[in-house]
Design a protein around this nucleic acid. Sequence first.
DNA 1: GCAAGATGCGCC
DNA 2: AAAGGGCGCATCTTGC
Length: 662
Amino acid sequence: MHKIIGFDTETFFSRKLKYSVKTMIAEQYCKHELFDPYIISVSDGETNWAGHRRDFNWNALEGQTLISHNRYFDNSVYNEMVVRGWAPRINIAGWHCSANLTAYLCNRRALAHSIEYLYGIKLSKDPRENSDNKRWPADFSAEEQRKMLDYARLDPFWCRKIWVDHSDKWPEKEKRLSNLTIDQGMRGVQIDTRLLDEYICQSHEMKLATEKLLPWMNDEGDDEEEIGWEGFKTKPTSTKCIAEQCRRSGIPCPPVKAHEGEEAYEEWENEYRRNHPWIVSLSSWRSVNKLYKSFLTVKARLRSDGTMPFGLKYFGAHTGRWSGDAKINMQNMRKEPVLCTVGGFMESNQKNIEEAMRHKESTGKFPEWVKYALDFRALVIPRPGKKMIVSDLAQIEPRSLAWLVGDHQTLDFVRAGKSIYEAEARFSMGFKEDKLDKKSTIYAEAKARRLALGYGAGWLKFITMAHQYTGMDITEGDPEFEFLPDGSKVSGYGKRSREIVAAYREQNPLIADKEKGIWAALELAFKRSIGSDLKVVLPSGRVLRYEKVKCERKLKPDKDGKPRLSAVFTCDIGGRRFESYGGKLTENLVQAFARDVFADHILILNDTPGISVLFTSHDEAILEVDEHITKHDVENIMSVCPEWCAGLPVAAEAKEVSHYLK
DNA sequence: GCAAGATGCGCC
DNA sequence: AAAGGGCGCATCTTGC
């Protein structure tokens, strides 16, 4: 008879020896000499068994469906046990991850948190905490052994119960996406190991060279003030050292990017970088160090065949997007290479970098001042005999927003093969000419408006975002002063931005109208949910949940920076409270909707013979394919409009590449 | 000595 | 009344 069996393992770990799944990925942990899975525990709902692996009847699993809370881990443990001859190969009907299920159900991954949410029962993790650095059975007293076994029996019981009680709410597609994600990570990607070794040496060199330019790291007598750095732990990015250095140099401390904004920091940097070169070195050090550490992690993770396993979290974000996991985040590998100048330092001037990239594009080589280039993405290559294709959805989020609000004018225009940014120029910016040059200011502004203003951004934010998306500085040309109707004189900074934001909102009523727009509709729904939950049903049928909505009073700085009490609306997501409002809810909705479109494509790609999905990054699929698969095949699949969002213009751009890039 | 929070850096 | 959002990891400081 077919059974659903909860399956769990308890393994030796040691914080002291830095041996745990926190410090390494599951496979590294299992390959380690300290690896010891000393308890196997299973539950079929009636019997909960726990004991040493020697005493486990593996045949009981034959033909059954297994449920583990974090299948990635338990599956890796089992695989290694087979390799070591500690477990036989068995045929199972399937193996599912209840942590992925609870992420989908209630935005929680930890078993204890999920059980508390779903059943109102608090489980103790004490026995596991007490097993830190303890060998089984020698380091456990008889009492401790009994407690540990009792504890171990509970885990598979609960993860099985979660499955039995709730898996009917998990659509078949999502179950497949969950297992697909786990399998992708376990399969891993091929790494160019020769290049990796080169990168490790080069980035280490750069790191050391950069470190020497930080005054507090190189305080050898040439300091005129002779104050020394006693009392300071001189670490490369120590905030205390930075502050002290600024004091000594008579310059203000750097503005905090998260508070004062990115451009405030840029301004500060531009003001002082000439006379204080360490300022640039500081940022460089952070970048180079990050890169260097990533290279080391890749190296430590390599298998003998040059592939590297990785982790990606199914439903890592509450919108349903995947998120990174386990030290190397496949979704945030830098796009542009780090360029090392002849002096051994990282080039940080954006203009120089762009020029170097253009030079490379046209001549195939970097200019002479580039000593070497470190490109993380170049490390990821197709396996022998395979090709690599990278494909991403074209402007999926702005298109999704247009579809969600029913902007048929824009949708028709895009379906006719035209640009969604041009739609903005024509329909809400008054552009009337025959042709819109993609290099024109109008086009750039239209693009910035579509990308930045759909979710309620204000004028100050728009200045930064416009710069980020198009490179243009829209404050250029702002008057120094403005006169208000009452005759008073105020700064003219941001005049243009204010005008653009107001015009966008005026011209896009489906989005921004204070009564009929989507921001207002979602905000109203949110406020009406006070005292209960807001459920936003997505076109795919999936539901976004904002639980326990409340109106709270919060101190916020007003225009003059003085604290003022204001009303904010908050909700519970995954056990934590967040503030939200119309624009933010709109963004969540669009992100979740676009994720569902993309997820459909991933399933079709995966079902296509000759295509393996290596990993994904929000709207981009990185594929390893057989010789006969072309980029057009991939584009065709990723241009499919799911049946639950008829009329959405979906398109993709794919390219065949020798290594991961963009 | 560890955990939590703040900050910066990377991505879509 | 106004408010872009979603992530993860490394480093450092602070508080227990």
